[in-house]
Design a protein around this nucleic acid. Sequence first.
DNA 1: TCTGTAGGCGTTTTT
DNA 2: CGCCTACAGA
Length: 739
Amino acid sequence: MLAESLLEGLNPEQRRAVECTEGPLLVLAGAGSGKTRVLTNRIAYLIGVCGIPLENLLAVTFTNKAAGEMRERVEKLLGPRSGDLWIGTFHSVCVRILRRDIGHLERSRGFVIYDDADSLGVVKDVLKRNNLDPKVHDPKRLRWRIDQWKNAGVLPAEAEKKAYDIDEELCARLYAGYQRRLVDANALDFGDILLQTVELFKRFPKVLEYYQRRWQYILVDEYQDTNRVQYELISLLARAHRNICVVGDPDQSIYGWRGADVRNILDFEKDYDEAEVIKLERNYRSTQPILSGASAVVANNFERKRKKLFTEREGGDPIQFYEALDDREEAQFVVRKMLVASRNDGSSFGRFAILYRTNAQSRSFEEELLKYDVPYKVVGGVRFYERAEIKDTIAYLRLLVNQQDDQALIRIVNKPSRGIGKTTLERVAALSAERGVPLLEGLRLHAEASGSGRTANAIRSFLGMQQELREVLAARSLDQVIDHVLERSGYRAALVKEATPEAEARLDNLQELMASAGDFHSANEGLIGEDSSEVELFLEQVALISDIDGWDERAECVSLMTVHSAKGLEFPVVFLVGLEEGIFPHASSSGDAEGLEEERRLCYVAMTRAMEQLYLTCAGERRRFGARSFQSPSRFLGEVPEKLVEVLSDRHGRSRASRHSSAPSDDIADTSSLDYSYSQDANEDGQVVQPGVSVQHPVFGSGVILAVIGTGLSQKLKIRFKRVGVKTVMVRYANLELG
DNA sequence: TCTGTAGGCGTTTTT
DNA sequence: CGCCTACAGA
């Protein structure tokens, strides 16, 4: 009976994907093909029909939101008893494994998780210790290199061995230094969470065996976005029983820049030669024009498995295209459309999403939405947990839990100012390095050595506060601990004294933090005390939180987010904005074919978020980097078949788009696309100067145009040079060569 | 040691 | 344009 209800309403392919429980299974799930439903029903089927115990299942996703949704839906099918069922993100699953077993790697289970800012701090510290000038050796670049190594599963020793030139060798050595600093701080960065888990499994077969035996059935969502380490992790776990089901869509692979390798999904059938392959090609989400338009765009990719999606939602509005004069007008257009729809048919604002390529683009839309009092929510951008006051408070907690957390100490030791400034900290850092102890211990030594001066007293008082707070930590609940921290540290008092609107907003945020800590406390009562304390669990959750996790589809407001964040979501009406060369495709990706193809897949993902209506917009001019920049329409616009598009324009022939709309377009209606042989911004030789174009500079070398500023003799270009970074140059004097 | 200000630099995308 | 950093002055 349960079996029937779990298969009911599924199409034959979906049904097979649920029923085919044994052995390796690859589900190629096109956009909107009911993938989540298949995954959840499959889990429920395994448990409820096949009788597999909950604890023998592992389901892995990329975001907490996806994991939470899956759990919720499984509980709806089976009842609320899914406690032992492991559904989580790669990161949260690995943290749980490490909390239990990291001891084998001679590390402590009380580790903290370093976020991006923390690890950048460590990189800077490593450069300093090696007497390297951060102006010459860009910390961000080094951080990025290390991250790539970690994503590829390369440990420092291997990186050094493989180094092919001096620079690479230096980076690899610094990577080793960085790693030592992390170990000293008892910290793991994001990459480590995965890498150390794989390391653990490789070096300790007994440990691996335990988990292999435990997880008899493994499911992986968004498999096309896995990187090397994630791939290895899954392979290791699945090796024993080969009951592995992966779900994904090569056309939606959009995380190449963070090490994801689409070959993982393309080679699945090679890895598991007995694999079953099921294609879900029926789209339940979008109308015909939307699906056809999106498919036409991604069909321009060369490296691609052919796939045909079809929908039964025939008819439907054409894709709407609007070319605005500038970014402000683009925002006006979008908001006006929403207001009209809401007035005419009472559309809830929750039906609308504005999707853009980069976070910075949200601004003009926010201003316009504010102007008309339209409720909206921005996903990502400045995140709650990245606000300074929140990070400060968290840093206090981190230092209490882990006294080796140097980055946390650096952050709060003088916040609010208590007379332990830069010079003191520098001396303490030198002392700590010399003795090989954490900064907190270094402070102690420093105070002892320097008698009863002003600084020494300040340090003593700080250490006293730490001692006191640690006692509170042991005795009180999470929200009470936070309250004590804010009180005893003088942090709250300092903000109150400031008495500015900003300070008040910060106080509000801290209040909110305490509220969420209170929620956390009540939600986890009874669960605490086995492997970690409440504060530790809270810190862990905060560290692994992602942008999209806080998004609530039930909220009746317009959603603003990047296309990356929007993956996996759907909206009745989507505005895909800023479709301009240099932005989408982004200037830094349009240089090579691979990068461009990923941008195109990104465009495909964006378009397929729409259920009923899709608006595409671009602007002829926009403020970028504080200056005006002329933009030309994205090449992707030209890849949408013209017959699917309705061109909107409220001006009398002033925009290029309106000219096209009135042009006769009969002869090749089936294959023709919106034609953008834009004639603007050509230089003397008639070559097009626009964002995304690569150039050669006689002194700075090769680079990519970021923005075109002004026209004529005073025209300037903002260019990112490979060697020297971003520079603005005068076209007239720079003697640039294109290409 | 702290605070204010000038200059420089940046925007991909994120667990 | 805004944020962050470096530097100068109190």
